[in-house]
Design a protein around this nucleic acid. Structure first.
Lengths: 248, 248
DNA sequence: CGTAGTGTTGAGTCAAGTCAATGGTTGTGG
DNA sequence: CCACAACCATTGACTTGACTCAACACTACG
């Protein structure tokens, strides 16, 4: 696993929904890059600054977030290993949000220019990148719906489904569940609730038999029931060719 | 105005932040298209269906929306004239949300394939389209923050600022305000509140001297004060070259 | 093995929702 | 051009989901 090429995860991520030719795959792996360990809470991108390097988490999770003037934080997205963080800034000059490591982990750094060059010269990769950013946008949209129109229990259930589904797609989940890398405070910041209310709501979901918890790992005793209760439909994740696999 | 080429607005929209060569501009105008009148509430894109035509509102506004299983609606974005609606689906096979006309209006229809072809063959246009979808994604992110972490008065103030700013950038606003094309129910669906609460909150904003209302038009007696109260910072709109203009 | 960060629980408050009635606008067809 | 009908805005009274404050328990890591 550790012996693997660090950008292999990036390739796997693109290949979730686009077929890549062997040449394109190799071109991605050939991108110049360095691997670095990052502490929990360290910033990968900072609002208001120009993004210089493109970052791909290899182990550990990152989150996109913004701080309001009132000082509250909203987490806008969770980036799992293999998901390049800066595609959202690839053609913009200034970052409009922050990206932070949730826990300690390793990341691969790729020069932004090289990635842009590759996207321009290889249209298969260019379109794969475009498609990936569109799927990210679809996730942002679903979060708007989740936070705007669902009650706390559904809201938390929904994000748990999404993370599970995405991790499973990437082969990063366990058989029935997965390691949830977030504190209850962070979870609250992701769904627009307070940590106290997250705590109570998680208890409720356990009581209703929708989830099981052990430390920071979550599992779903009955995936269909959970899916239903959460109003979760994976269509917005555009799972593509490997759709039937990702199922708990 | 009516004698103008219908796709002129689309060009103007791209040129807000990308310089286009005369050739690229002409290539956009040369796209095959038809103009059509659409009734209020008619669907331009439907969740679960493949998008066939790319739609550009010419007069009138459209909105992106999703319905939860509980039957509540969340509006995810407002598309103003000149903003191509289907860029979000350009490289995806199935729409994950609905797009609807808010009021009666006219739209230009462009075959999706032709637009994709042009994006591929003309990298200036390809990157302009990519950049535009990234700005849309930035707006989705800001909406997550707005709905997740701001109180009702700020939340409504913020969306009013955003719409004003965007309309002003496109030259579609009046001197001090603009025509708000939404009912209070629609506004509520956009910010995750009930129509009753929207009504009370609008009254509050008027009482505080932040906005003035006359029928469905809104104006800002003191833009700086409004901006401040709304926690509005236009950075996420990536206003680009014409930034200083857009100011109330 | 102590300390700081999390998780858990209870009691009280408040922002926003619900229900319901009334009043205004707007658009359409006679 | 008027009159109706449908839709939209407004207001009041009451309810509730989520927040706040505060205390205590766990647990992980140096």
């Amino acid at each position: 696993m550790d012996a693997e090429h660090p950008l292999q995860l990036l390739v796997r991520n693109f290949e979730l929904r686009c077929r890549l030719s062997p040449e394109s795959r190799q071109a991605l792996l050939d991108l110049p890059h360095s691997v670095q360990t990052m502490e929990a809470g360290s910033y990968l991108v900072r609002e208001g600054e120009p993004p210089k390097k493109s970052v791909v988490p290899i182990s550990g999770y990152a989150c996109r977030q913004k701080i309001t003037r009132a000082g509250t934080r909203q987490i806008i997205a969770i980036q799992i290993p293999g998901e390049a963080v800066d595609l959202q800034n690839l053609y913009l000059e200034t970052a409009d949000h922050n990206v932070q490591m949730l826990r300690r982990g390793t990341v691969a750094l790729v020069p932004r220019d090289k990635l842009r060059e590759l996207a321009r010269s290889n249209s298969e990769i260019g379109e794969a990148i475009f498609a990936k950013t569109l799927v990210e946008a679809a996730i942002f949209r679903e979060w708007v719906v989740n936070i705007g129109r669902r009650q706390a229990p559904q809201r938390i259930a929904h994000i748990l489904c999404e993370l599970g589904f995405r991790l499973k797609s990437m082969g990063l989940a366990k058989e029935y569940g997965y390691e949830l890398p977030m504190t209850q405070e962070e979870l609250g910041d992701a769904v627009g609730l307070t940590p106290v209310h997250v705590n109570r709501t998680l208890k409720l979901l356990v009581a209703e038999g929708l989830i099981e918890r052990d430390k920071r790992s979550v599992s779903f005793p009955n995936w269909q029931k959970m899916r239903d209760a959460a109003d979760f439909n994976e269509r917005y994740l555009h799972p593509g060719i490997q759709a039937p696999i990702a199922n708990f």
